[in-house]
């Protein structure tokens, strides 16, 4: 079943002649695992923002779970998709690491016990539990990134979009992240990883979409590398 569908989508940023995303058509299944690669500035992040409805395409249509993405509120999109920004420090806005994870959970009406349980579980994934009282802004870049990822994972979205999730993460936790992603994918969560990190992408079985200058130049399913 098609979960996300793009039909001839183009987007140019304000004041730019060259479009950042050019005439892209894609169909993405709900449980599909996709790696999007491409050089800096090839339009990967723009594509993600279009899917989330943060940017409105000048041309083409984007359908999310059967409805045009423009018809959703951001909250509605958030219920369908989990999204980790390329710059995770922009996603942290709480006064402690614990609250950062708890934030979305509380607003989704989870009970106190549930919130606590999930916070512990997801902070433990990357050994962040000991940092739970710290201000998120005072963490190292890699820790910030892990907190942002954990906060989104804790919401257990049915589809996950990660933009450069490994940018400042050490090799050990990168491996860990890779395993976690594999695991939640096995349990039925679709994943879109935007990355040029070969360590993460290598052995990342599934669909591979390569972008260049705003266009999809390769779209294939790979099983091994």
């Amino acid at each position: 079943m098609v979960f996300i569908s793009l039909q001839g989508v183009s987007y140019a940023y304000n004041g730019r002649k060259e479009a950042a995303v050019k005439n892209i058509s894609l169909s993405i299944g709900q449980a599909e695992k996709i790696a999007i690669t491409g050089l800096n500035g090839s339009g990967k992040s723009t594509l993600a923002k279009l899917i989330l409805g943060l940017l409105k395409p000048q041309n083409g249509k984007i359908i999310l779970d059967g409805r045009p993405v423009g018809k959703y509120s951001l909250v509605g999109v958030g219920e369908k998709l989990g999204y980790v920004l390329q710059n995770p420090s922009q996603m942290l806005f709480n006064t402690s690491v614990y609250n950062e994870i708890a934030f979305g959970l509380k607003w989704r009406g989870k009970s106190k016990n549930e919130v606590h349980y999930l916070c512990k579980r997801y902070l433990d994934l990357f050994d962040l539990w000991d940092l739970r009282y710290e201000m998120p802004f005072n963490l190292s870049d890699g820790q910030k990134q892990l907190v942002a990822i954990s906060a989104v994972l804790a919401l257990q979205p049915s589809y996950l979009i990660l933009d450069e999730p490994t940018k400042s993460i050490d090799t050990f936790r990168k491996k860990k992240l890779k395993d976690i992603l594999q695991e939640i994918w096995r349990r039925g969560t679709g994943i879109m990883v935007i990355s040029h990190d070969t360590e993460l992408i290598t052995g990342f079985e599934g669909r591979r979409i390569h972008m260049s200058k705003g266009e999809v130049v390769e779209d294939a399913v790979r099983y091994t590398d």
């Binding site: 951001l74 909250v75 958030g78 922009q90 996603m91 806005f93």
Partner: peptide
């Protein structure tokens, strides 16, 4: 831009 990102983040995480 940053303010917009925070607003987006808050909403994507479920606050209407």
């Amino acid at each position: 831009n940053e303010l917009q990102n925070i607003f987006n983040g808050i909403q994507l995480r479920g606050v209407d």
